[in-house]
C-alpha cells in the first residue's frame, strides 16, 4: 500500500481507459479507444502514429479542448490526483495554461496576430499579484530562455515579424511564462526546416530539464521521438497498440504495426535495404473492425484477430503490446540493435 502511494505521487498525469467519440452526420467516430497511460514528473512521453490515429485528440482531451461534437463517455484523467473531467470551468481555468501548457504546430495560428508578443506573455500573468516591472522582467527572461536575441526589442513586435523558427520560440516562451508542470507539444517541429527543427528539439529538451517539466509530445516522426522521448506509445485507429521505453521500441518492436512503420521508414541507418510499405490504408473511425483494428493490414492476421480485439498485455516490464501473436515478433529486428542487458 505504501509503495502504491509513492508510485502515485510519481505520476503527474494518469489517464485511465479514456474514450472519445465524435458525432457528425448521425455517425459515431471512435476517435480514442480505451487509452491508458501515465506521465511521470520530469518525463517526456511521446504519442506517435499516422494522421487520424487519435494522437492529437487524446492530448486535447487531457485539457478538455475538444470540439463541441465530441463526447467522453468513459475515462478518467487524473492530474496530480484530481480528475480533470469532473472539474468545473472555473477550476479547469486554473489548470489550463497554468499547470498544463500547450504548444502547436503552427505558431501563426496559435498566437494572436494583432497583439504584441508582450501582451500575449502578460496574459499568462493574469490573476497573479505581479507588478508591471516584474512582469516585464519575467517576459524578457522567458524570451532569453528560448534563445530569442535582443528580447527587450522583440517583445514589442508582432508574430508576423518573426521568422519560422523564432515564431516557434516565441510561442514556447508565451506558454512557459506561466511555468506549467506539463507541456503538451503537438507536432512542434513539423512545419520547420531540418536545421531549425534540430534547434527546437534541443531547446525543448534543455528547458524541460531546467524547469523540471514533463512533456507530452505528439508527432508522426520517429526521428523526433528518438531524440526527445523517454517512453513512447504507438497509436493506431484510436488505440494504443504498443508502449515501451524509446530504446526498446526502436530496437525490439513487438506489434506488427510498429514493425511495419519501422520497415517503411527510409533511413540512413539502413544501408541498401528496400522499404517495405504497409499494404492498404487506415480504417475509417466510423467503421472500425470488430477485432484487431490493424488486422486487415497485418501480415500475421488470423481468424482470432478478425473476431476478437486483443487486450494491452505486458510482455516485459514496461513493454505493453496489443496483439494476439506478439510472440511471433520475438526475434524481429528493429531500427537499431542493442546488446543483451543494455537498457
Amino acid at each position: 500500500m505504501a509503495k502504491e502511494i509513492i508510485k502515485d505521487n510519481d505520476n503527474l498525469l494518469e489517464v485511465n481507459n479514456l474514450n472519445v467519440r465524435f458525432y457528425s452526420n448521425g455517425r459515431e467516430m471512435k476517435a480514442v479507444n480505451g487509452v491508458t497511460f501515465n506521465i511521470k514528473k520530469g518525463e517526456t512521453f511521446g504519442f506517435v502514429g499516422e494522421s487520424g490515429c487519435g494522437k492529437s485528440t487524446t492530448s486535447r482531451a487531457v485539457i478538455r479542448l475538444l470540439a463541441e461534437n465530441a463526447k467522453v463517455p468513459e475515462g478518467e484523467i487524473l492530474y496530480n490526483g484530481t480528475d480533470i473531467l469532473k472539474l468545473s470551468q472555473d477550476k479547469l481555468r486554473k489548470i489550463r495554461g497554468k499547470e498544463i501548457g500547450m504548444i502547436f504546430q503552427e505558431p501563426m495560428t496559435a498566437l494572436n496576430p494583432v497583439l504584441t508578443i508582450k501582451k500575449q506573455v502578460y496574459e499568462q500573468f493574469i490573476g497573479t499579484s505581479m507588478t508591471n516591472k516584474e512582469k516585464e522582467e519575467r517576459a524578457i527572461e522567458m524570451l532569453r530562455l528560448v534563445g530569442i536575441p535582443s528580447p527587450e526589442k522583440r517583445l514589442k513586435e508582432y508574430i508576423h515579424q518573426f521568422s519560422g523558427g523564432m515564431r516557434q520560440r516565441a510561442m514556447i516562451a508565451t506558454t512557459l511564462a506561466a511555468n506549467p508542470k506539463l507541456l503538451i507539444a503537438d507536432e512542434p517541429t513539423t512545419a520547420l526546416d531540418v536545421t531549425i527543427q534540430d534547434q527546437i528539439i534541443k531547446l525543448i529538451n534543455k528547458i524541460k530539464k531546467q524547469m523540471g517539466m514533463s512533456v507530452l509530445l505528439i508527432t508522426h516522426d520517429l526521428g523526433v521521438i528518438s531524440q526527445m522521448c523517454d517512453r513512447v506509445a504507438v497509436m493506431y485507429a484510436g488505440y494504443f497498440v504498443e508502449t515501451a521505453d524509446t530504446l526498446t521500441l526502436f530496437a525490439k518492436p513487438r506489434h506488427p504495426y510498429t514493425k511495419g512503420l519501422i520497415d517503411a521508414l527510409p533511413s540512413t541507418e539502413k544501408k541498401n535495404s528496400s522499404l517495405m510499405p504497409i499494404k492498404g490504408t487506415t480504417p475509417s473511425l466510423a467503421e472500425l473492425p470488430k477485432g484487431c483494428p490493424f488486422g486487415p493490414r497485418c501480415p500475421y492476421c488470423e481468424d482470432k484477430c478478425v473476431n476478437e480485439l486483443p487486450e494491452m498485455t505486458e510482455i516485459e516490464s514496461g513493454h505493453m503490446v496489443r496483439c494476439h501473436f506478439s510472440y511471433k515478433l520475438k526475434n524481429a529486428s528493429g531500427l537499431i540493435s542493442i546488446e543483451e542487458g543494455e537498457q
Binding site: 521568422s163 523558427g165 534540430d198 534541443k202 530504446l247 526502436f250 537499431i336
Partner: peptide, 23 residues
C-alpha cells in the same frame, strides 16, 4: 550540418547542442 541536423533514429545518440544556430 544538414546531415547532422536530421534527427538520429538511435535514441542513445542524443546531442545537447543543435548542429547549427540561426536561420
Amino acid at each position: 550540418i544538414l546531415i547532422k541536423s536530421s534527427p538520429n533514429l538511435d535514441p542513445r545518440k542524443r546531442e545537447e547542442a543543435p548542429a547549427i544556430n540561426g536561420n
